[in-house]
Design a protein around this nucleic acid. Structure first.
Length: 560
RNA sequence: CGGGGAGUGGCGCAGUCUGGUAGCGCACCCGGCUGGGGGCCGGGCGGUCGCAGGUUCAAAUCCUGUCUCCCCGACCA
């Protein structure tokens, strides 16, 4: 029984003053969530129903691939985190219990689940395993933002696979990929599965599930048959008009011109006819020179992957000591490894001369400097993949799947005995999904100027019945009966029985965004009908009062 | 972490520059009208002006400190 007159659904006419994202504004206005602190949110009853519906879909798909649901604590002893090297992570909340023991709040549960498996699994016969739970995650985010899109505390479904080796992991990974495809479809999101960065913690493969929308924090690169996070995306660069070559580099004066723009303008060349040099330091003090086309940008994540290690940008004093004045540096004559981005085609370029106020023109990679080819530039819209131009759009990461390998089983000693009696490391994968983000993404993707428009599968209620009559009126009687019949038919129905004007009721119904709104009012009742509005598109029709519940339920079943 | 902004009733805001009885709209409560797109009239309730200290006869307003929140960027195993 959900009657709006006694339901805790505090709707607001105005969004919070400082809200920017659509989902932030609408979820607050619709009475789904309320803020407690920075990155801390309560889910009010209607909002929690949405969250629970997403959770149930995810649970069903996890169970369908043989996942076994369990529950692990949020408050954890610090020791396993010290063993895996994650105790130093800035986002990790650290605390002490009354005896002074180091404790942490879980960011995820690799350490704990691996500990359980390490303690219990002995034989290859005990594997594979898929374990998962829905549990609160705590992360001391540098900058929470946009309602429930990025919070410090949130519920995540995290699953872990335990296998005998790489092949088993591959199989578990494939299962999750199919399960994730299905759950995203069932939730009703527009989504992409994209190739993802594996991060510095190591890993051997990862995908992210991305829901495109304006409030997204990630950029995805898309072309027919291709989807990747811009952090790892590769594409063919757009061609640039290069000047004719020459036998040898020639110095040209460029006084005070320390930017690509200034030099290109001075020489009347496109920025892409220049090469940009980016000196980096690895292993404390070894300098390498990364070179990309003048109109391209170095993507630091791709560069880290290409280097196979962490790096930092060189300081000014290091650049001056080993190359030349910043703004005039280049690869010619540089006594250090040179990494040349593949976006630089054969041809003749302008580079810094490693001397004050001068550049060199007519420089040809290979002839005038030796290099190692790398792919480190950030893809931009219009680059091509397989001949098709890519587009780049913002997206929310709602899930990720990750091949961990032995990253955790090794430090935590999760081993088994194989058929030959040899001790082997267990191979692991981890698989996250954020129901709150999925809900927010759905809001972002389907909202219109009137409010939210939920996909049928995760709406807080299937149908909202609005009666325009006062207590004791015929409208009220018919609506009461319809409400009961819909509920009996298994439809989750919200009944707006408040003594409000029609405008307020319609506005609130469209703000909340249930897929169907049924209006029982004098106007249609006169001809023995009630009005049914499909929220998405806001088209209305009427159905006879006689048999209305079944007709409405049928209409509902056909909605997206 | 760098930059910018904001804390005044449940929500949205004015008042601060130039110190002098804390206001407006919405919401809420009471009465009445209205009844298909946030309707109308009348009457009400509700605020230690984020917190602490200081200046002053007097502080939302000036000064110092502090806390919190938001936005942009960096970061986000």
């Amino acid at each position: 029984m959900t009657r709006l007159s006694s339901y805790f659904l505090p709707t607001e006419r105005d969004p919070p003053a400082d809200a920017e994202a659509i989902s932030h504004k609408l979820m607050v206005r619709a009475g789904l969530i309320r803020q407690v602190g920075s990155g801390l949110w309560s889910w009010l009853p209607a909002g929690w129903r949405i969250h629970q519906r997403v959770v149930q879909i995810v649970r069903e798909e996890m169970n369908a691939i043989g996942g076994q649901e369990l529950l692990m604590p949020v408050l954890l002893p610090a020791d396993p985190w010290k063993r895996t090297g994650r105790y130093g992570i800035d986002e990790l909340f650290k605390l002490n219990d009354r005896r002074g023991a180091d404790m942490v709040l879980a960011l995820t549960h690799e350490e704990i689940v691996t500990g359980h498996v390490a303690a219990a699994v002995r034989s290859y016969r005990d594997l594979p395993l898929i374990l998962y739970h829905f549990q609160v995650k705590e992360r001391d985010e540098a900058r929470p933002r946009a309602g429930v899109l990025r919070t410090r505390e949130f519920i995540m479904k995290d699953a872990y696979t335990f296998d005998r080796g790489a092949e088993g992991l591959e199989a578990g990974y494939e299962k999750h990929m199919r399960a994730y495809d299905r759950m995203c479809d069932r939730i009703g999101l527009e989504w992409y599965r994209v190739e993802a960065d594996v991060g510095v913690m190591g890993g051997i493969g990862a995908h992210e599930y991305m829901a495109p929308c304006a409030a997204g924090e990630n950029d995805v690169v898309l072309a027919p048959g291709y989807a990747a996070n811009v952090e790892v995306a590769s594409a063919d660069a757009q061609a640039v008009q290069l000047p004719g070559g020459s036998d040898a580099p020639q110095s040209v004066p460029t006084p005070g011109m320390t930017t690509i723009d200034a030099v290109a303008t001075e020489l009347a060349l496109p920025e892409g006819a220049l090469l940009k040099a980016f000196p980096v330091i690895v292993d404390e003090d070894a300098m390498k020179l990364v070179v990309v086309r003048g109109d391209h940008r170095v993507n630091e994540i791709k560069l880290r992957t290409a280097l196979g290690q962490d790096f930092r940008a060189a300081r000014t004093d290091e650049i001056e000591a080993r190359l030349g004045p910043p703004g005039f540096i280049g690869p010619v004559g540089a006594e250090m490894p040179i990494l040349l981005d593949e976006g630089v085609a054969q041809g003749s370029y302008v580079v810094g001369a490693n001397a004050p106020d001068a550049h060199l023109r007519g420089v040809e990679p290979g002839r005038d400097f030796r290099f190692e080819p790398v792919d480190v530039r950030e893809v931009v819209a219009g680059d091509t993949v397989g001949g098709s131009a890519v587009r780049i759009e913002p997206a929310i990461e709602v899930g990720n799947i990750f091949k961990l390998g032995t990253r955790y089983s090794d430090p935590l000693g999760a081993r088994y005995l194989d058929e030959s009696g040899t001790s082997q490391l267990i191979w692991m994968g981890s698989y996250g999904f954020g129901p709150a983000r999925a809900a927010a993404a759905a809001v972002e993707q389907y909202a219109d100027e009137h409010g939210i428009s939920w996909p049928r599968s995760i709406a807080p209620f299937d149908i909202e019945v609005v009666t325009l009559g006062k207590e004791g009126s015929e409208e009220r009687t018919v609506a009461d009966r319809l409400y009961a019949e819909l509920t009996d038919a298994g439809i989750d129905t919200l009944y707006d029985d408040r003594d409000e004007g029609p405008g307020a009721k319609f506005a609130d119904a469209e703000l909340l965004g249930c897929p169907l709104r049924v209006t029982v009012g004098r106007r249609t009742l006169a001809s023995g009908e009630v009005e049914v509005q499909v929220r998405r598109g806001r088209e209305s029709r009427t159905v006879p009062v006689e048999g209305a519940a079944e007709a409405i339920a049928e209409l509902w079943r056909g909605l997206p």
